[in-house]
Computed example of a mutant assay.
Amino acid sequence: MSQSFIELGPGYSDFFEFEELIHYNHERIRSVVALHTTLEQEPKTSILVIMNPTRQGHFQGIYSTFESLPYPYPVSNKRFDFIREWAGRYELPFLEYEIKAIHYFHERELFYNYLTGVLRLQRQLPPLS
């Protein structure tokens, strides 16, 4: 199986692409995940929409926007509330984890490998077999 991060940008138009993605593909979505970098001076939140693998080709897409939302605790923010509401509308699992920030990794691919490991440990991605 091939798994790939499909990165959307940090802007508002990219953010609202998540709404359309959830609306039109909610039956294929495995979970919506918020990743928090709480050990930073200015904590940020990333959002992932993890799809179930395709029937043909065995491809699993992970739509993502990294460190583009303000950390929502103790005071939430509108974009985080929207994501949570969109997931709730279709009764999708909404999960939250703490992770290391991207800047700790010399290459983007190393960050993706780290994140894949975290998601596999949390059973959000199936093992490669």
Rank of each mutant, 00 (worst) to 15 (best):
S2P: 07
L8R: 12
P10C: 12
P43K: 13
A101E: 04
L110M: 06
T54P: 00
I102A: 08
Y63S: 04
H26L: 09
V32I: 14
G11S: 15
P10M: 05
E91C: 01
A87Q: 10
I83H: 04
E67L: 05
I62Y: 08
L8E: 02
P70Q: 05
L35W: 08
L115H: 03
K78C: 03
L8A: 12
R28L: 09
S76I: 07
Q122R: 15
Y104A: 11
P126T: 11
L121M: 03
Q56D: 09
E20A: 08
A87V: 07
Y97L: 12
E17S: 13
F59A: 07
L121D: 11
F16P: 01
P74E: 11
P10V: 11
Y63T: 03
L39T: 10
M51V: 06
H26W: 08
L21E: 00
D81N: 08
S76E: 14
E85D: 13
R123H: 13
V49I: 15
L35C: 09
L121G: 06
E109R: 12
E19L: 15
F16Y: 15
L8T: 10
K44F: 03
F15H: 14
F80P: 04
H106L: 10
R30H: 15
G88H: 12
E42G: 01
I29S: 06
P53M: 04
P127V: 10
L48H: 08
P53D: 10
F66E: 03
S13G: 04
G9N: 12
Y71F: 13
L115C: 02
H106C: 04
F80I: 07
M1G: 14
K44N: 03
L35N: 01
F5T: 08
Q3W: 08
R79K: 15
L121C: 05
V118I: 14
P93V: 03
F82L: 10
P74G: 06
E91P: 01
Q60H: 12
A34I: 11
Y90C: 06
G9A: 14
N113W: 00
T54D: 02
P126D: 09
H103V: 02
I102V: 09
S31W: 02
G11H: 11
L110F: 02
F5D: 00
P74L: 12
P72S: 10
L95M: 05
D14P: 01
K44P: 04
V49G: 01
F94W: 13
R30S: 14
Y97F: 15
G57D: 07
K44V: 14
F111M: 02
Y12G: 04
I6D: 12
F66T: 06
I50V: 14
P53T: 12
R79H: 10
V118M: 05
E19V: 02
F105D: 02
F18Q: 00
S129M: 11
S129W: 04
R84D: 05
E107H: 10
